[in-house]
């Protein structure tokens, strides 16, 4: 198993943000965590990514215990991530953002003499090509449309040849058409390179259209898990989260994806 999360628990004061959260994720698989606001999605996510340390429980990556490691060390183990609000190096060009990731990947961040503008440029351009940003390589990130910024983030996350991608609401703030494009791109890359993808999402099209499996969190607890069909059919999920309209939307999304 690529990622194995076992019994994660996190309290903030009196509030239980995550309670006995466990799930597995295989290489090349897309796993979505869904749930209402405040359900503990981001908490769980940040415990996997290293931004938060769990009170109890373990996070195993390819058989190795990475619980409580800081993000930069989790990354070293092969985990790339994107943020709910895209985090990029806004003073740099698109290609420089990816070069930066490559510089870090090759452990040359403390190099005092090399010319950073040309370092790993070819490799970076190849990665940009993979996400369809070749033409924008030399534009400043600050000038891009938000959808493109998200793709830059994806390219940055891919630069370290990760085994696992963590994507926190990858399509938040994007136009519907862009959302679909980004999710398709992610899914195709993940499957082609056998990268596991763990993502949270509010957008039902993205979830039911692309996830292989879904975990439903409510008040810090997993109330359902399974394939999109299973989750859609789950009565409790319908009750506490999706509601009738949500189920309809989920159904539509699934059909559209299969068509």
């Amino acid at each position: 198993m690529l990622l194995s999360v076992q019994g994660l628990q996190k309290r903030f004061g009196g509030l239980v943000a995550a309670k006995d959260v466990s799930f597995d994720l295989a290489a090349g698989e897309l796993l979505a965590i869904i749930g209402p606001n405040g359900a503990g999605k981001s908490t769980t996510f940040n415990m996997v990514g290293g931004q938060l340390r769990p009170d109890t429980g373990r996070v195993m990556l390819a058989g190795e215990d990475v619980t409580g490691l800081p993000p930069r060390l989790v990354w070293r183990k092969g985990v790339g991530r994107t943020f709910q609000i895209a985090q990029t190096f806004v003073s740099m060009s698109v290609v420089e953002n990816v070069q930066m990731a490559l510089i870090s990947f090759h452990e040359r961040t403390r190099d005092l003499t090399a010319d950073a503008t040309s370092l790993y440029r070819t490799e970076a351009l190849a990665i940009l090509d993979g996400v369809g940003l070749t033409e924008m390589a030399d534009r400043s990130v600050s000038e891009l449309a938000y959808g493109d910024v998200k793709r830059v983030e994806l390219a940055v996350a891919l630069a370290s040849e990760p085994k696992l991608l963590l994507m926190d609401e990858p399509t938040a703030g994007m136009a519907p058409r862009e959302r679909a494009q980004l999710m398709e791109l992610t899914a195709s890359i993940a499957r082609a390179r056998k990268i596991g993808v763990l993502f949270t999402e509010h957008d039902m099209d993205a979830v039911f259209g692309h996830a292989d499996r879904i975990v439903v969190l409510v008040r810090g607890e997993i109330i359902a898990r399974g394939t999109p069909e299973e989750v859609r059919a789950d009565q409790r999920v319908k009750q506490v989260y999706l509601g009738e309209t949500g189920v309809q939307a989920a159904l539509k999304a699934r059909r559209a994806a299969q068509a």
Partner: peptide, 29 residues
């Protein structure tokens, strides 16, 4: 000036632009 143009300087700017992003690509900010 050389340092600013070198990976060291780029990394410093990266940490300034987004500490979260820098952290998530393995930079010890």
């Amino acid at each position: 000036r050389r340092i600013i143009y070198a990976p060291f300087g780029y990394t410093l700017r990266a940490a300034r632009d987004s500490a979260n992003r820098a952290d998530a690509i393995g930079i010890d900010v």
